[in-house]
């Protein structure tokens, strides 16, 4: 049943553009607020998550979620040149998934209790996914993770602490309260500007289908695995490098040669593809 949501292409694009511009601007600003880090516990406060969250509750959740993730990538990573490589993929996915799910859960934005619970839940979900990836990274990176005395406990403790702390800060102060401030004020006002009807339980978007959830989770797992693997690769090699300095150069050489070969192949293929068009 594809006509379930009732959002047209144009409305989706408007939501995407709106979410991208606003959240992009917000992350650009928050990028300039120095992050506070205590040991490995980083206070990764998402100051402005309430913006796309509000939009996801009022408009098409998927467009709002994708728009927000794209906005962050473009405005704060690419524009400021703070592109962190593969790690950004993880953030992109966690933000998209959390916002999307949160957006579909609110069937009536006038119900403040749902809005409050979902906005807190959204932060919790996003943080939990990040923490999960972090833990996986350590597990992969340190050989015989379980065997090192005290390590599992301390990792779980610090990650758990960070999560609880972020939830308190990002979740309540910067996500739940502003969302509860914005949603009722925008409801019924902002939708007509985009030529849409306000969301009611009757026309609310359907909860994500099982297929979509599975696809999303699969994506996330792959991304997490890639991130972990990348991390693990680095660390393993550093281990090795301590024994044999010279091997690093050899390895780098081989790696470079491999990459060059792959790139050359891709280059040729892409050119042929474009020529055929």
């Amino acid at each position: 049943m594809p006509a379930n949501t009732g959002y047209t292409q144009s409305q989706k694009l408007m939501t995407f553009v709106l979410s991208m511009s606003l959240y992009g601007l917000a992350t650009l600003i928050s990028e300039l607020i120095p992050s506070v880090q205590v040991g490995i516990v980083e206070f990764s406060v998402e100051f402005f998550l309430f913006i796309p969250l509000t939009l996801a509750m009022l408009f098409d959740p998927l467009s709002a979620a994708l728009g927000a993730a794209t906005g962050e990538l473009v405005f704060s990573e690419i524009m400021l040149g703070q592109f962190g490589g593969i790690g950004e993929l993880e953030k992109f996915l966690t933000v998209t998934i959390a916002l999307y799910i949160a957006g579909t859960l609110v069937r009536d934005p006038r119900n403040m209790r749902t809005v409050a619970i979902v906005s807190l839940g959204c932060t919790a979900l996003q943080l939990a996914m990040s923490a999960g990836v972090d833990i996986c990274k350590v597990v992969f990176a340190v050989e015989e993770f379980e065997a090192v005395p005290g390590l599992p406990e301390s990792v779980f403790f610090t990650e758990g602490f960070a999560l609880a702390n972020d939830l308190l800060f990002s979740g309540i102060l910067f996500c739940m309260l502003p969302t509860m401030f914005l949603v009722p004020r925008l409801y019924g006002k902002i939708e007509p500007l985009l030529g849409m009807k306000p969301r009611t339980p009757q026309n609310a978007p359907e909860a994500p289908s099982a297929k979509l959830v599975i696809a999303a989770i699969a994506c996330f797992v792959i991304a997490a695995a890639v991130a972990c693997f990348a991390e693990a690769g680095f660390t393993l090699f550093e281990w090795e490098a301590e024994w044999a300095e010279s091997e690093s150069a050899v390895f780098a050489g081989i790696a470079v040669a491999a990459v060059v070969a792959i790139v050359a192949a891709f280059w040729a293929r892409r050119n042929a593809q474009l020529k055929a068009a």
């Binding site: 408007m14 606003l22 917000a26 309430f50 913006i51 502003p178 914005l182 006002k189 902002i190 985009l194």
Partner: peptide, 19 residues
Amino acid sequence: MMSFYPLMLNTAKRSRTTV
């Protein structure tokens, strides 16, 4: 934080023409 309320409405007005 509160600045984003007017900003959201103003941007919404714009994005319709843009799209």
